[in-house]
């Protein structure tokens, strides 16, 4: 019987969710991008409004589906739809935004019931543009939320670094 398992990439607009999925996917990433009409235009011209979808064949019977969510909170109904039954969630935070910790909080709050049943890994991107908050700040914040997740500064276009996120998630699931 064919089996499909999934991992969800969520996080702020422009944090690199689509890029991260692209580095891993065997197929061209299926996107639902549309033209931007709001302040996001300062960062990019198009944005995901339903999902990104990539796929990795694990063996003849098993496919790993990689789903990217829309970043904006107004699409949070998609977050619930896409995370149902997933192994875990990778939360990608753009460190060059005004308040990355508050951004993280939005995703932790919305995904809290899901994370309690699975796991989360936090990926901080664009640290080359802004190195504040530091990793230590993120860890401190996660500690206060009783969520001792891994946090890594990564470049979403770097396959090795994206693999570290997957590898850490597998390690957490393996010892659970």
């Amino acid at each position: 019987m064919e089996e499909s398992i999934k991992i969800v990439f969520t996080g702020t607009v422009g944090a690199g969710k689509t890029a991260a999925i692209r580095t891993l996917s065997d197929i061209p990433v299926v996107s639902t991008d549309v033209d931007v009409t709001d302040e996001v235009k300062a960062i990019k011209d198009t944005t995901t409004v339903a999902m990104d979808y990539g796929e990795v064949a694990l063996d003849e019977q098993t496919t790993l589906a990689l789903y990217g969510t829309p970043g904006q909170e107004r699409f949070r109904y998609m977050w619930e739809i896409l995370s149902a039954g997933a192994l875990g969630v990778i939360i990608m935070i753009d460190n060059s935004r005004p308040d990355p910790i508050s951004d993280l909080d939005i995703y932790l709050e919305n995904f809290a019931p899901f994370i309690a049943e699975s796991c989360a890994v936090v990926a901080v991107t664009h640290s080359d543009i802004s190195d504040s908050p530091s990793l230590q700040d993120f860890h401190r914040y996660l500690g206060s939320k009783q969520m001792p997740c891994p946090v890594f500064q990564v470049d979403a276009r770097d396959r090795e670094q994206v693999l570290l996120l997957i590898d850490s998630m597998m390690a957490i699931l393996d010892v659970a």
Binding site: Q136, P148, P150, V151
Partner: peptide, 10 residues
Amino acid sequence: RLKNWPDFAR
């Protein structure tokens, strides 16, 4: 225990 995860990206 660990205070937090080491930064394995580095």
